[in-house]
Design a protein around this nucleic acid. Structure first.
Length: 501
RNA sequence: GCCCUCAUCGUCUAGUGGUUCAGGACGCCAGAUUCUCAUUCUGGUAACACCGGUUCGAAUCCGGUUGAGGGCACCA
């Protein structure tokens, strides 16, 4: 058995993320993973990814892939785990049953654990009774001291059995790196089931063995695990294993302040990718959910977060997941991208989620980049690019003619206005057809007209709608430049036709 | 019911006994720029759950109350 102090100096802190593939990898797990990762990187340690799939019924491969994909997408890399080489594998608990079996047998042999033959119905009735009497629900310890002969006989008869540990009567104390001293009275817990059989260990048992064998020094997990900690410490004590450091992160809550779950809407990380969020924005946002560095700055890259991360500054109370704030983080990270970077991101996004779209194939990169440049300040999510800029890629726009009307303009006025636009535009040469020139020509025209001078909207609104088909868009001059003279004129003529019919 | 944990603006948070009638950010509202939307800029809104105690002095320390969350599996 290695001295834990030696292993620590050899490896630095070793943290582990131990998700179970029983559901989609959601933001709560992602944040736990992120904090583990930040802590390990900050302190020069190792980050181990272990798949907790002791429950064969509920664990599925597709969920496991979802976990791996989500982590990769966020840029969280594990030093050891699935898909990597390492000396502490296998990294699936389902492949470690032989290892657990050894420890289970040891506990049984030493009389620290025992077979229990009580039926689930029996247990259920006991529990209900204890709650009714205002007592903490606790196993009766009926099978604790069964004679050897009875155990042998029951086992031989293949009577259903589970393995329980003998919980000592004492108070377990441990120091949580975030919360400080935490105490639990084991009297209230009772003899916990640690395995369904020698080859079917349960979570609380398996993690203890794994944390030990993988030389884990820091266990950073959600607060929902805090009440599992005394059970795990007891198992460590029974086996004579060292205790790692524990840190329990505050919960991520939904708007109703209950634990974030699927009923709060999108929870899978991949859903956020689909919605057009940037991984770096999600990382930034998640890092700030329950943690805050010194100072007022809010936008950070992963590298900077690693540099700044400090478990001591983790919040104790739960944090509500606020999508508006995520949107802001996303917009900020989007703004830090230049046009080429945005072009790549948008291209990739369309390829992934709109495989039928031909926008990228059918247009030159230069054309798309011009549009991106124009729409960039309006973008909160990548997905919005498609909605905002569709009119650049369509031959014919569909909009109601009512939209062409600025305030209370009559149809006649709109026709006059659009014809004025046409005349100005036709006067500009192909070569000079850029936003600056167009704007100068229009503003000159407006200065000469009392009607338009009073309200520029009478001239510019119908034009902009004719070009975009939208009530909200970039300025008509900018659109005109990108569309080019021919298309610009065509669209205004189309608007005229529409209003006349 | 029992156990554990937590408690500053609507939300994320700064604050570890005095320089804070509490700072930043999101949101919201108003204004400037503007044909629209967005960006940008300026301003505003809004909090120490409550009650006691310790102290010259408390958001900060202690006790209680209340509230919230989590756990109480042959799930993880």
């Amino acid at each position: 058995m290695d001295d834990p102090k030696i292993s620590q100096s050899l490896f630095g802190p070793r943290v582990r993320l131990a998700p179970s593939p029983t559901g989609w990898f959601h933001v709560g797990n992602a944040r736990t993973g992120l904090f583990n990762y930040l802590f390990a990187r900050k302190n020069g340690g190792k980050f181990i990814l272990r798949i907790e799939d002791t429950d064969k019924e509920r664990s599925e491969k597709k969920y496991e892939k979802n976990i791996l994909d989500g982590l990769k997408w966020l840029g969280i890399e594990w030093d050891e785990g699935p898909e990597t080489q390492g000396s502490f594998g296998p990294y699936h608990q389902s492949e470690r049953t032989e290892i657990y079996k050894k420890y289970l047998e040891q506990l049984l042999k030493e009389g620290k654990a025992y077979y229990c033959f009580c039926t689930p119905e029996e247990l259920e009735a006991q529990k209900a009774d204890m709650i009714a009497r205002g007592l903490p629900p606790k196993y009766s310890e009926k099978c604790r001291d069964l004679p050897e002969s009875v155990i042998k006989k029951n086992l031989a008869e293949k009577k259903p059995a589970v393995i329980r540990i003998k919980m000592p009567n004492k108070v377990i104390k441990f120091t949580d790196l975030i919360r400080g001293e935490v105490e639990f009275d084991l009297n209230l817990i009772g003899d916990t089931v640690i395995a369904k059989s020698l080859i079917e260990p349960l979570y609380n048992f398996a993690v203890v063995i794994d944390d030990y064998l993988m030389k884990i020094t820091h266990v950073i997990r959600g607060e929902d695990h805090i009440s599992n900690t005394p059970k795990q410490i007891t198992i460590q004590e029974l086996l004579g294993l060292p205790m790692p450091n524990y840190a329990h992160l505050p919960m991520i809550l939904g708007p109703d302040r209950s634990k974030l779950s699927s009923r709060h809407g999108a929870v899978s990380l991949i859903d956020y990718q689909k919605k057009g969020y940037l991984p770096e924005a999600l990382v930034n946002f998640l890092a700030f959910l329950g943690w805050h560095p010194i100072g007022d700055r809010e936008i950070y890259s992963m590298e900077e977060l690693i540099e700044l991360f400090d478990l001591g500054r983790v919040q104790k109370g739960g944090a509500v997941f606020n999508i508006k704030r995520l949107d802001w983080f996303n917009a900020q990270h989007l703004k830090s991208l230049n046009t080429d970077q945005l072009f790549d991101k948008i291209g990739e996004y369309i390829k992934n989620f709109y495989p039928d779209s031909k926008i990228i194939e059918d247009n030159s990169p230069e054309y798309i980049k011009k549009i991106i440049e124009l729409e960039a300040p309006r973008l909160t999510k990548l997905s919005e690019f498609i909605d905002f800029s569709d009119f650049f890629f369509k031959e014919n726009l569909v909009y109601s003619k009512e939209l062409l009307k600025w305030k209370s303009m009559a149809d006649k006025e709109i026709i006059v206005s659009l014809n004025d636009c046409l005349n100005i535009l036709k006067d500009i040469s192909e070569k000079d057809f850029n936003r600056i020139n167009i704007q100068i020509k229009f503003y000159n025209f407006i200065t000469e007209s009392d009607n338009y001078q009073k309200d520029k909207g009478k001239l510019l609104w119908p034009m902009r709608v004719a070009l975009s088909g939208k009530k909200a868009s970039p300025s008509p001059f900018e659109i005109a430049e990108i569309l080019g003279k021919k298309k610009t004129i065509l669209r205004i003529e189309q608007a005229l036709n529409q209003i006349k019919t």
